[in-house]
């Protein structure tokens, strides 16, 4: 059975950037969200295995999503993909439960390396 994936980013191009480099095992069952509120709605109503999450977004930002996931006790592997590359932000999202921080624009080899590290490849 394929893993369910949610890509959350307010940019259509950024969502496509992730989508086009997803390995086959993750590319069959993909949903998209354009802000953090949409992502939380999906996460609260469905079982999602992997979330690729942007940080700087309108409505609810990526940090808000991570806090929402923590408060609701949702089990999902979160990979943050963001342009906000400050070390303090990277530490913050990892403390909130993200598996990894990937800087934008995300590269295929970097994504694969993190997925492999977390048993998803």
């Amino acid at each position: 059975m394929s893993l369910s994936v949610l890509i959350c980013d307010d940019s259509n191009m950024a969502r496509k950037q992730v989508l086009r480099i997803l390995p086959e095992a993750l590319a069959d069952n993909v949903q998209l969200a354009t802000n953090g509120a949409e992502a939380l709605e999906v996460l609260n109503s469905q079982n999602i295995d992997v979330l690729f999450l942007d940080l700087t977004m309108p409505v609810v930002d990526g940090v808000g999503v991570l806090q929402g996931i923590k408060e609701a006790g949702i089990t999902v592997k979160v990979f943050v993909i963001s342009a906000d590359i400050q070390p303090e932000m990277q530490t913050k999202v990892l403390d909130l439960g993200a598996k990894a921080f990937l800087r934008k624009p995300v590269q295929l080899d970097v994504l694969n390396s993190h997925l492999e590290q977390h048993g998803l490849l």
């Binding site: 940019s11 191009m13 950024a14 700087t56 963001s82 342009a83 906000d84 590359i85 400050q86 934008k104 624009p105």
Partner: peptide, 14 residues
């Protein structure tokens, strides 16, 4: 363009 600017802004902020 917005996404390119987001990435540029992120690095400028860093």
């Amino acid at each position: 363009l917005q996404e390119i600017i987001n990435v540029a802004m992120g690095q400028a902020s860093d």
